[in-house]
C-alpha cells in the first residue's frame, strides 16, 4: 500500500486543527479507508482527548522514535470506528524530542499500512511545525474568517511552498452565515481571493462541536450535525470526489422571518 500523508496545519492556534483532524480522519475511515492520525503536538497533546482515547495511551510517538516500543504497540485503535488508529503525542516531552528525519521515516512506515496518514500539526511555525510537515505529501490549512487567522494561513502557505508542498488547500472553519449576511464576517469569496489557493471545504460554526468534544466523540458520527456533514464532504473531496459545497444558506424559519423584517 502507498498511502497519502496529509498534514493539517494553520499557523494560528485555536482555529480547530485538532477537531478537523479527528473529524476528517473519522470520516475517511467511515468511508472504508484505513486511517491513522498522528498527533504531532508534542507536549500539548489533545487529539487523544477529542477522540476520547486518553485512557488507552501506553506508548506515544516519542517512545516509537526512541525505539522504546514498536510502532504497532503505540497505535491505539479507535473505540467506535473501524480502521481508525491514533498515534498519540508525548505529553511530558518537548518539540525537540522528534526531528524531521524521524518524522519522515515514521510517515513512510505508516503509509505502507494505511490509506491515509493525517498529521495534526502544532500551532506556530517553529520546530513542531517543521517536524509535522516533514513527511507530508499534501497539506490542509484550517482557518477561520478572521483577519488574524487568515494572515497566519497566508504565512503558512508561503512556508509550505518552501518545503515543496505547493498546492495546499484551505478549510474555512467556523463560518457564521448570519454574520456573513449582515456583512460582519468575511465570506468564502473574500478569503479565497486573498489567499489564492484551492478551497477544500467550509464548516459552519456548530454548537454540536462543543458537545462532541466534551464527550470525546467526533461530530461526524452525528448524522444530524451540519458541521459533521461539512467534514464528511471534505473527506469525500480528499478522496478525489467532486462534492458540491454544503448549502450554508439553509436557515431556520425564524431566522429567515427575522431577517426579512429586519431584526437580525
Amino acid at each position: 500500500m502507498n498511502g497519502k500523508v496529509i498534514v493539517i496545519t494553520s499557523g494560528k492556534g485555536g482555529v480547530g486543527k485538532t477537531t478537523a483532524t479527528a473529524n476528517i480522519g473519522t470520516a475517511l475511515a467511515m468511508d472504508g479507508n484505513k486511517v491513522v492520525l498522528i498527533d504531532a503536538d508534542i507536549g500539548l497533546r489533545n487529539l487523544d482527548v477529542v477522540m476520547g482515547l486518553e485512557n488507552r495511551i501506553v506508548y506515544d510517538i516519542v517512545d516509537v522514535v526512541e525505539e522504546a516500543c514498536r510502532l504497532e504497540q503505540a497505535l491505539i485503535k479507535d473505540k467506535r470506528t473501524k480502521n481508525l488508529h491514533l498515534l498519540p503525542a508525548a505529553q511530558t516531552r518537548d518539540k525537540n524530542a522528534v526531528n524531521p528525519a524521524q518524522m519522515r521515516n515514521l510517515a513512510n512506515e505508516l503509509r505502507k499500512e494505511f490509506d491515509y496518514v493525517l498529521v495534526d500539526c502544532p500551532a506556530g511555525i517553529e520546530q513542531g511545525f517543521k517536524n509535522a510537515i516533514a513527511g507530508a505529501d499534501d497539506a490542509v490549512i484550517i482557518t477561520t474568517p478572521e483577519v488574524s487567522a487568515v494572515r497566519d494561513a497566508d504565512r503558512i502557505i508561503g512556508l509550505l511552498e518552501v518545503e515543496g508542498l505547493k498546492e495546499p488547500r484551505v478549510v474555512v472553519n467556523r463560518i457564521r452565515m448570519e454574520m456573513v449576511r449582515r456583512g460582519d464576517m468575511m465570506d468564502l469569496e473574500d478569503m479565497i481571493e486573498i489567499l489564492a489557493i484551492g478551497l477544500l471545504g467550509v464548516v459552519p460554526e456548530d454548537e454540536d462541536i462543543v458537545v462532541s468534544t466534551n464527550r470525546g466523540e467526533p461530530v461526524v458520527l452525528d448524522p444530524e450535525s451540519r458541521a459533521g456533514m461539512a467534514f464528511h464532504n471534505i473527506a469525500q473531496r480528499i478522496q478525489g470526489k467532486d462534492v458540491p459545497l454544503l448549502n450554508l444558506e439553509k436557515e431556520k424559519l425564524m431566522d429567515r422571518v427575522k431577517r426579512i423584517i429586519g431584526l437580525s
Binding site: 476520547g52 485512557n55 488507552r56 501506553v58 466534551n214 464527550r215 470525546g216
Partner: peptide
Amino acid sequence: CIARSPDGF
C-alpha cells in the same frame, strides 16, 4: 497490569 477509567462523558 493496566486499568483505565470508564469511557464516556
